[in-house]
Write a protein that binds this DNA or RNA. Structure first.
Lengths: 147, 147
DNA sequence: TATTGTTATACTCTATAACTATA
DNA sequence: TATAGTTATAGAGTATAACAATA
Protein backbone atom coordinates (compact mmCIF):
# COMPACT_ATOMS: atom_id res chain seq x y z
CA UNK A 1 0.00 0.00 0.00
CA UNK A 2 1.28 3.43 -0.87
CA UNK A 3 2.51 5.43 2.10
CA UNK A 4 1.62 8.83 0.68
CA UNK A 5 0.53 11.02 3.51
CA UNK A 6 -2.62 12.98 3.02
CA UNK A 7 -4.23 15.76 4.99
CA UNK A 8 -7.71 15.73 6.48
CA UNK A 9 -7.73 19.48 7.19
CA UNK A 10 -10.49 20.86 9.43
CA UNK A 11 -11.97 17.39 9.78
CA UNK A 12 -9.30 16.62 12.40
CA UNK A 13 -10.62 19.46 14.55
CA UNK A 14 -14.33 18.86 14.10
CA UNK A 15 -16.25 17.72 17.12
CA UNK A 16 -18.36 15.15 15.30
CA UNK A 17 -15.37 13.39 13.80
CA UNK A 18 -13.37 13.47 17.05
CA UNK A 19 -16.26 12.08 19.08
CA UNK A 20 -16.48 9.19 16.64
CA UNK A 21 -12.72 8.50 16.77
CA UNK A 22 -12.64 8.71 20.57
CA UNK A 23 -15.64 6.42 20.96
CA UNK A 24 -14.22 3.77 18.67
CA UNK A 25 -10.96 3.95 20.59
CA UNK A 26 -12.73 3.56 23.94
CA UNK A 27 -14.73 0.66 22.56
CA UNK A 28 -11.57 -1.12 21.35
CA UNK A 29 -9.87 -0.66 24.73
CA UNK A 30 -12.93 -2.00 26.48
CA UNK A 31 -12.62 -5.26 24.56
CA UNK A 32 -8.85 -5.43 24.95
CA UNK A 33 -9.15 -5.38 28.73
CA UNK A 34 -12.61 -6.80 29.39
CA UNK A 35 -13.32 -8.93 26.37
CA UNK A 36 -12.32 -12.04 28.29
CA UNK A 37 -15.40 -11.70 30.50
CA UNK A 38 -17.68 -11.83 27.48
CA UNK A 39 -19.59 -8.68 28.37
CA UNK A 40 -20.19 -5.78 26.00
CA UNK A 41 -20.19 -2.14 27.11
CA UNK A 42 -23.96 -1.83 27.04
CA UNK A 43 -24.37 -5.04 29.00
CA UNK A 44 -22.09 -3.75 31.70
CA UNK A 45 -24.04 -0.49 31.90
CA UNK A 46 -27.25 -2.43 32.40
CA UNK A 47 -25.66 -4.71 35.00
CA UNK A 48 -24.31 -1.72 36.89
CA UNK A 49 -27.62 0.13 36.85
CA UNK A 50 -29.48 -2.91 38.18
CA UNK A 51 -26.85 -3.11 40.93
CA UNK A 52 -27.55 0.54 41.78
CA UNK A 53 -31.35 0.06 41.60
CA UNK A 54 -32.32 -3.46 42.62
CA UNK A 55 -35.94 -4.12 41.73
CA UNK A 56 -35.99 -1.63 38.86
CA UNK A 57 -38.40 -2.40 36.07
CA UNK A 58 -37.49 -3.40 32.58
CA UNK A 59 -39.05 -0.35 30.93
CA UNK A 60 -37.73 2.23 33.39
CA UNK A 61 -34.23 0.88 32.92
CA UNK A 62 -34.54 1.09 29.13
CA UNK A 63 -35.80 4.65 29.33
CA UNK A 64 -33.04 5.75 31.68
CA UNK A 65 -30.26 4.26 29.57
CA UNK A 66 -31.81 5.32 26.25
CA UNK A 67 -32.08 1.71 25.12
CA UNK A 68 -35.11 0.59 23.12
CA UNK A 69 -37.35 -1.89 24.95
CA UNK A 70 -36.85 -4.52 22.26
CA UNK A 71 -33.09 -4.23 22.63
CA UNK A 72 -33.28 -4.26 26.42
CA UNK A 73 -35.11 -7.58 26.26
CA UNK A 74 -32.20 -9.18 24.40
CA UNK A 75 -29.58 -7.57 26.62
CA UNK A 76 -31.26 -8.72 29.84
CA UNK A 77 -31.81 -12.15 28.35
CA UNK A 78 -28.06 -12.54 27.81
CA UNK A 79 -27.28 -11.36 31.31
CA UNK A 80 -29.82 -13.83 32.65
CA UNK A 81 -28.37 -16.72 30.62
CA UNK A 82 -24.98 -15.82 32.02
CA UNK A 83 -26.42 -16.15 35.51
CA UNK A 84 -25.76 -12.53 36.48
CA UNK A 85 -29.31 -11.20 36.54
CA UNK A 86 -32.60 -12.50 37.94
CA UNK A 87 -35.96 -11.55 36.41
CA UNK A 88 -39.18 -11.71 38.36
CA UNK A 89 -42.83 -10.86 37.84
CA UNK A 90 -44.34 -8.76 40.63
CA UNK A 91 -47.83 -9.74 41.89
CA UNK A 92 -49.07 -6.14 41.86
CA UNK A 93 -48.62 -5.91 38.06
CA UNK A 94 -48.10 -9.18 36.31
CA UNK A 95 -47.24 -7.46 32.99
CA UNK A 96 -44.06 -6.00 34.47
CA UNK A 97 -40.61 -7.50 34.89
CA UNK A 98 -38.42 -6.42 37.79
CA UNK A 99 -34.71 -7.04 37.79
CA UNK A 100 -32.05 -7.74 40.36
CA UNK A 101 -28.56 -9.16 40.40
CA UNK A 102 -27.83 -12.73 41.38
CA UNK A 103 -25.12 -13.36 43.97
CA UNK A 104 -22.84 -14.03 41.03
CA UNK A 105 -23.82 -10.70 39.48
CA UNK A 106 -23.02 -8.83 42.69
CA UNK A 107 -19.70 -10.62 42.89
CA UNK A 108 -18.92 -9.59 39.33
CA UNK A 109 -19.60 -5.95 40.18
CA UNK A 110 -17.47 -6.04 43.34
CA UNK A 111 -14.65 -7.68 41.47
CA UNK A 112 -14.63 -5.71 38.21
CA UNK A 113 -16.40 -2.42 38.99
CA UNK A 114 -13.04 -0.71 39.51
CA UNK A 115 -12.03 -1.55 35.96
CA UNK A 116 -14.90 0.57 34.71
CA UNK A 117 -14.98 3.48 37.08
CA UNK A 118 -11.96 3.34 39.30
CA UNK A 119 -8.41 4.59 39.01
CA UNK A 120 -7.52 1.30 37.27
CA UNK A 121 -9.98 1.92 34.45
CA UNK A 122 -9.75 0.09 31.15
CA UNK A 123 -9.24 3.42 29.38
CA UNK A 124 -5.68 4.28 28.45
CA UNK A 125 -4.83 7.84 27.44
CA UNK A 126 -2.35 10.64 28.06
CA UNK A 127 -4.68 13.00 29.87
CA UNK A 128 -3.78 14.19 33.34
CA UNK A 129 -6.29 13.59 36.13
CA UNK A 130 -7.53 17.17 35.92
CA UNK A 131 -7.78 17.04 32.13
CA UNK A 132 -9.83 13.86 32.36
CA UNK A 133 -12.13 15.49 34.88
CA UNK A 134 -12.56 18.49 32.59
CA UNK A 135 -13.27 16.22 29.63
CA UNK A 136 -16.01 14.49 31.65
CA UNK A 137 -17.49 17.87 32.59
CA UNK A 138 -17.47 19.13 28.99
CA UNK A 139 -18.99 15.92 27.61
CA UNK A 140 -21.78 16.07 30.20
CA UNK A 141 -22.49 19.67 29.28
CA UNK A 142 -22.33 18.88 25.56
CA UNK A 143 -24.89 16.11 26.06
CA UNK A 144 -27.18 18.20 28.23
CA UNK A 145 -26.60 16.07 31.33
CA UNK A 146 -25.65 19.03 33.51
CA UNK A 147 -26.34 22.74 33.58
CA UNK B 1 -44.71 3.34 31.61
CA UNK B 2 -43.74 3.91 35.20
CA UNK B 3 -41.99 7.19 35.83
CA UNK B 4 -39.94 5.98 38.75
CA UNK B 5 -36.63 7.77 38.64
CA UNK B 6 -33.53 5.65 39.02
CA UNK B 7 -29.91 6.52 39.52
CA UNK B 8 -27.01 5.48 37.30
CA UNK B 9 -24.34 6.49 39.83
CA UNK B 10 -20.73 6.68 38.65
CA UNK B 11 -21.80 5.56 35.18
CA UNK B 12 -22.90 9.13 34.49
CA UNK B 13 -19.34 10.33 35.07
CA UNK B 14 -17.49 7.58 33.25
CA UNK B 15 -15.67 8.56 30.10
CA UNK B 16 -16.67 5.49 28.09
CA UNK B 17 -20.38 5.99 28.75
CA UNK B 18 -20.23 9.75 28.10
CA UNK B 19 -18.35 9.30 24.83
CA UNK B 20 -21.06 6.94 23.70
CA UNK B 21 -23.88 9.31 24.69
CA UNK B 22 -22.18 12.31 23.07
CA UNK B 23 -21.50 10.41 19.87
CA UNK B 24 -25.08 9.22 19.54
CA UNK B 25 -26.26 12.77 20.12
CA UNK B 26 -23.91 14.17 17.48
CA UNK B 27 -25.02 11.48 15.06
CA UNK B 28 -28.70 12.32 15.62
CA UNK B 29 -28.08 16.03 15.09
CA UNK B 30 -26.18 15.28 11.91
CA UNK B 31 -29.25 13.58 10.46
CA UNK B 32 -31.63 16.23 11.76
CA UNK B 33 -29.79 18.95 9.86
CA UNK B 34 -28.16 17.11 6.97
CA UNK B 35 -30.33 14.06 6.47
CA UNK B 36 -32.11 15.76 3.60
CA UNK B 37 -28.94 15.55 1.49
CA UNK B 38 -28.83 11.80 1.85
CA UNK B 39 -25.22 11.68 3.05
CA UNK B 40 -24.02 9.87 6.16
CA UNK B 41 -21.26 11.20 8.42
CA UNK B 42 -18.66 8.78 7.08
CA UNK B 43 -19.56 9.61 3.50
CA UNK B 44 -19.09 13.29 4.17
CA UNK B 45 -15.69 12.64 5.75
CA UNK B 46 -14.58 10.76 2.65
CA UNK B 47 -15.97 13.46 0.35
CA UNK B 48 -14.16 16.14 2.32
CA UNK B 49 -10.87 14.29 2.34
CA UNK B 50 -10.97 13.75 -1.42
CA UNK B 51 -11.66 17.47 -1.77
CA UNK B 52 -8.55 18.16 0.32
CA UNK B 53 -6.46 15.59 -1.57
CA UNK B 54 -7.58 15.31 -5.18
CA UNK B 55 -6.01 12.25 -6.81
CA UNK B 56 -5.65 10.35 -3.53
CA UNK B 57 -5.71 6.59 -3.80
CA UNK B 58 -8.43 4.36 -2.50
CA UNK B 59 -6.20 2.51 -0.04
CA UNK B 60 -4.42 5.58 1.33
CA UNK B 61 -7.75 7.22 2.00
CA UNK B 62 -9.01 4.14 3.85
CA UNK B 63 -5.86 3.98 5.94
CA UNK B 64 -6.00 7.68 6.86
CA UNK B 65 -9.65 7.60 7.89
CA UNK B 66 -9.38 4.22 9.65
CA UNK B 67 -11.94 2.69 7.30
CA UNK B 68 -11.50 -0.87 6.12
CA UNK B 69 -10.82 -1.22 2.39
CA UNK B 70 -13.92 -3.33 1.88
CA UNK B 71 -16.05 -0.65 3.51
CA UNK B 72 -14.35 2.13 1.58
CA UNK B 73 -15.31 0.40 -1.67
CA UNK B 74 -18.98 0.59 -0.76
CA UNK B 75 -18.75 4.17 0.50
CA UNK B 76 -17.01 5.42 -2.64
CA UNK B 77 -19.42 3.49 -4.80
CA UNK B 78 -22.35 5.37 -3.24
CA UNK B 79 -20.62 8.72 -3.70
CA UNK B 80 -19.93 7.83 -7.32
CA UNK B 81 -23.55 6.79 -7.93
CA UNK B 82 -24.62 10.13 -6.49
CA UNK B 83 -22.39 11.84 -9.03
CA UNK B 84 -20.15 13.50 -6.44
CA UNK B 85 -16.97 11.48 -6.94
CA UNK B 86 -15.04 10.30 -10.00
CA UNK B 87 -12.91 7.15 -9.95
CA UNK B 88 -10.08 6.60 -12.40
CA UNK B 89 -7.38 4.02 -13.01
CA UNK B 90 -3.90 5.52 -13.37
CA UNK B 91 -1.70 4.19 -16.20
CA UNK B 92 1.35 3.89 -13.94
CA UNK B 93 -0.37 1.28 -11.71
CA UNK B 94 -3.48 -0.22 -13.16
CA UNK B 95 -4.38 -1.99 -9.90
CA UNK B 96 -4.96 1.32 -8.18
CA UNK B 97 -7.99 3.62 -8.07
CA UNK B 98 -7.51 7.36 -7.71
CA UNK B 99 -10.33 9.60 -6.61
CA UNK B 100 -11.40 13.13 -7.26
CA UNK B 101 -14.56 15.18 -6.89
CA UNK B 102 -16.84 15.94 -9.81
CA UNK B 103 -17.90 19.53 -10.38
CA UNK B 104 -21.06 18.60 -8.50
CA UNK B 105 -18.98 17.25 -5.61
CA UNK B 106 -16.96 20.47 -5.39
CA UNK B 107 -20.18 22.47 -5.46
CA UNK B 108 -21.56 20.36 -2.61
CA UNK B 109 -18.49 21.08 -0.51
CA UNK B 110 -18.58 24.83 -1.21
CA UNK B 111 -22.25 24.94 -0.38
CA UNK B 112 -22.41 22.74 2.71
CA UNK B 113 -18.87 22.66 4.13
CA UNK B 114 -19.77 25.41 6.60
CA UNK B 115 -22.48 23.20 8.09
CA UNK B 116 -19.81 20.72 9.09
CA UNK B 117 -16.91 22.88 10.18
CA UNK B 118 -18.03 26.47 10.28
CA UNK B 119 -19.68 28.63 12.88
CA UNK B 120 -23.05 27.41 11.60
CA UNK B 121 -22.27 23.78 12.35
CA UNK B 122 -24.95 21.15 12.63
CA UNK B 123 -23.96 20.55 16.25
CA UNK B 124 -26.16 22.17 18.87
CA UNK B 125 -24.91 22.38 22.44
CA UNK B 126 -24.50 24.76 25.36
CA UNK B 127 -20.72 24.99 25.34
CA UNK B 128 -19.07 28.38 24.97
CA UNK B 129 -16.63 28.86 22.11
CA UNK B 130 -13.66 28.41 24.43
CA UNK B 131 -15.20 25.31 26.03
CA UNK B 132 -15.76 23.77 22.61
CA UNK B 133 -12.15 24.49 21.68
CA UNK B 134 -10.97 22.86 24.89
CA UNK B 135 -13.19 19.84 24.26
CA UNK B 136 -11.63 19.46 20.81
CA UNK B 137 -8.15 19.69 22.31
CA UNK B 138 -8.90 17.09 25.00
CA UNK B 139 -10.52 14.67 22.55
CA UNK B 140 -7.52 14.93 20.23
CA UNK B 141 -5.20 14.25 23.12
CA UNK B 142 -7.37 11.38 24.36
CA UNK B 143 -7.24 9.80 20.91
CA UNK B 144 -3.51 10.29 20.50
CA UNK B 145 -3.89 12.76 17.63
CA UNK B 146 -1.73 15.42 19.25
CA UNK B 147 1.11 15.59 21.73
C1' DT C 1 4.75 -14.07 -5.18
C1' DA C 2 3.00 -9.57 -3.32
C1' DT C 3 -0.21 -5.77 -3.72
C1' DT C 4 -4.68 -3.27 -4.85
C1' DG C 5 -9.08 -3.40 -4.75
C1' DT C 6 -13.80 -6.11 -5.04
C1' DT C 7 -17.17 -9.37 -3.71
C1' DA C 8 -19.39 -12.47 -0.47
C1' DT C 9 -20.59 -13.48 4.01
C1' DA C 10 -21.59 -12.79 8.65
C1' DC C 11 -22.20 -10.61 13.07
C1' DT C 12 -23.45 -6.61 16.04
C1' DC C 13 -26.30 -2.79 16.94
C1' DT C 14 -30.42 -0.65 16.56
C1' DA C 15 -35.19 0.59 14.77
C1' DT C 16 -39.97 -0.69 13.69
C1' DA C 17 -43.94 -3.23 13.83
C1' DA C 18 -46.78 -7.15 14.94
C1' DC C 19 -47.88 -9.90 18.75
C1' DT C 20 -49.09 -11.78 23.73
C1' DA C 21 -50.45 -11.08 28.27
C1' DT C 22 -52.21 -8.22 31.69
C1' DA C 23 -54.50 -4.01 33.43
C1' DT D 1 -58.75 0.18 25.22
C1' DA D 2 -54.08 1.01 27.09
C1' DT D 3 -49.74 -0.67 28.86
C1' DA D 4 -45.49 -3.95 29.57
C1' DG D 5 -42.82 -6.66 27.42
C1' DT D 6 -41.54 -10.15 23.53
C1' DT D 7 -40.68 -11.72 18.99
C1' DA D 8 -39.75 -11.08 14.09
C1' DT D 9 -37.76 -8.59 10.61
C1' DA D 10 -34.86 -5.38 8.45
C1' DG D 11 -31.21 -1.88 7.79
C1' DA D 12 -26.67 0.30 8.79
C1' DG D 13 -21.97 -0.47 10.18
C1' DT D 14 -18.09 -3.13 10.21
C1' DA D 15 -15.01 -7.35 10.15
C1' DT D 16 -13.00 -11.38 7.67
C1' DA D 17 -11.89 -14.15 3.96
C1' DA D 18 -11.94 -15.57 -0.79
C1' DC D 19 -11.25 -13.68 -5.15
C1' DA D 20 -9.57 -11.12 -9.63
C1' DA D 21 -6.38 -8.19 -11.75
C1' DT D 22 -2.00 -6.23 -11.92
C1' DA D 23 2.76 -5.60 -10.39
Amino acid sequence: MSTNRIDIGELGHSLGYLLRIAQVRAYDQFFDVLGEYGLRPGEFSVLWTIHQNPGARHGVLAETLCIKLAHMTKTVRRLEERGLVVRSIPDEDRRAVVLSLSAEGEAFISEHGQLFFGSATYLRHDLSASEEKELVRLLRRFSGLSG
